[in-house]
């Protein structure tokens, strides 16, 4: 059984392996620097009538891809699915997994949902309540623009601090048996409010949360940043990444650029006009599933701290002038 360690961190005692990972991304993501790692990409509309259906299809196909590529497991072998997305009431995940016939628990942590689902999933496996669980999240540029910003055809200018929602879905299969990197400990994050109200600057809204969770994790476990081969945040983008480093430095935690990366910066090239970088539940999910997981598998890195970050806001809260609340959950993955 898992044991609490320090303030917020939970150490897992039984092995929880990430036995496989899969993702499907959109065209623009395929054209990015990680293009070679994305083995399947689709048109943004995925042959569906609406963007929401397209996003759901990304989820459905990713789930199928994950199961078909994992030997020794069939549909019935999945004990539970943890998933979420950015649409109202997690619509895409629900539609996407409805055909699976497996229990589904919807989670919402905005863009932090990937590590949130891995965190909850690994605790469930560790507690013995499940043997195999699937953690799946998605986001879609068009459906996110429609819900959070403006209609696609509206001629509006993006500001440099804004981010580009990743179109894609990523999923991992956690199991108590089998091969693969292990989730060893997890740190759920507290909500950080530093009165950021600019919805075009999500990175700044989430950076304190990322720094807070990283610091809590390090303090609770007594580790230094160098313990890890890589510390990766979810979708802070270039501005949020710089701010997160500033905040860590302010509290005497020094991380180098080589050690500390951000999925939002990894997934797009500057020439792709994504301003500050990628964002969305699909950002961390696809970068982890396609790229970081492979690095772990190939033993190019052995210890990874994955910290997906989320901006807990809605169109209503933004219009009412509520600040953007940041949250970040950390998952330590080791070979």
């Amino acid at each position: 059984m898992a044991v609490k360690c320090g303030n917020n961190t939970i150490m897992l005692e039984r092995p929880v392996h990430i036995i496989n990972a899969a993702c499907i991304v959109g065209q623009k993501e395929k054209e990015g620097p990680l293009g070679q790692y994305f083995d399947r990409f689709e048109e943004d509309d995925f042959n569906m009538d609406t963007w929401e259906q397209a996003e759901a299809r990304f989820v459905e196909e990713t789930y199928r891809k994950l199961l078909s590529e994992t030997s020794g497991i069939n549909e019935a072998g999945v004990d539970c699915i943890f998933g979420g997305d950015l649409l109202n009431q997690c619509m895409a995940s629900a539609i996407g997994v409805k055909k699976s016939g497996r229990p589904y628990l919807g989670l919402f942590g905005a863009c932090s949902t990937m590590t949130e689902s891995m965190l909850v999933g690994s605790l469930t496996v560790d507690g013995g309540g499940a043997k195999n669980v699937v953690c799946i999240t998605s986001s879609h540029f068009c459906s996110a623009e429609k819900q959070f910003r403006f209609p696609l055809e509206l001629g509006s200018q993006r500001v440099p601090s804004s981010q580009w929602t990743v179109t894609g879905s990523g999923a991992v299969l956690l199991s108590s048996e089998g091969e693969g990197p292990r989730i060893t400990c997890v740190t759920p994050g507290v909500i950080c409010d530093y009165n950021v109200t600019d919805t075009n600057n999500m990175g700044a809204g989430m950076a304190p949360a990322a720094a807070s969770t990283i610091m809590t994790h390090l303090a609770d476990t007594g580790r230094s940043p160098d313990y890890y081969d890589m510390v990766v945040t979810g979708d802070l983008g270039s501005i949020g990444h710089a701010l997160c480093k500033d905040i860590l430095k302010l509290h005497d935690v020094n991380v180098t650029d080589g050690l500390y990366k951000d999925c939002g910066m990894l997934i797009f090239k500057p020439e792709q006009e994504t301003c500050s970088g990628g964002s969305g539940c699909g950002c961390c999910a696809s970068v982890f599933s396609a790229y970081l997981y492979r690095l772990l598998k190939e033993k190019k890195i052995n210890k990874l701290l994955l910290v997906a970050t989320g901006a807990l806001m809605s169109p209503v809260s933004a219009k009412q002038g509520e600040p953007i609340l940041g949250v970040a959950h950390a998952v330590a993955i080791e070979n």
């Binding site: 303030n7 500001v159 440099p160 601090s161 507290v190 909500i191 950080c192 409010d193 530093y194 009165n195 950021v196 600057n201 700044a204 304190p208 949360a209 720094a211 807070s212 610091m215 809590t216 303090a219 270039s238 501005i239 710089a242 701010l243 500033d246 905040i247 302010l250 509290h251 500050s276």
Partner: peptide
Amino acid sequence: ESDNLTKLDDKKYEWMQKKRNQKS
């Protein structure tokens, strides 16, 4: 304090954001 960022407050963070802000 709601979190462990003891050396950070709204004012200081606003200043840090200004420093890092990219203007078009």
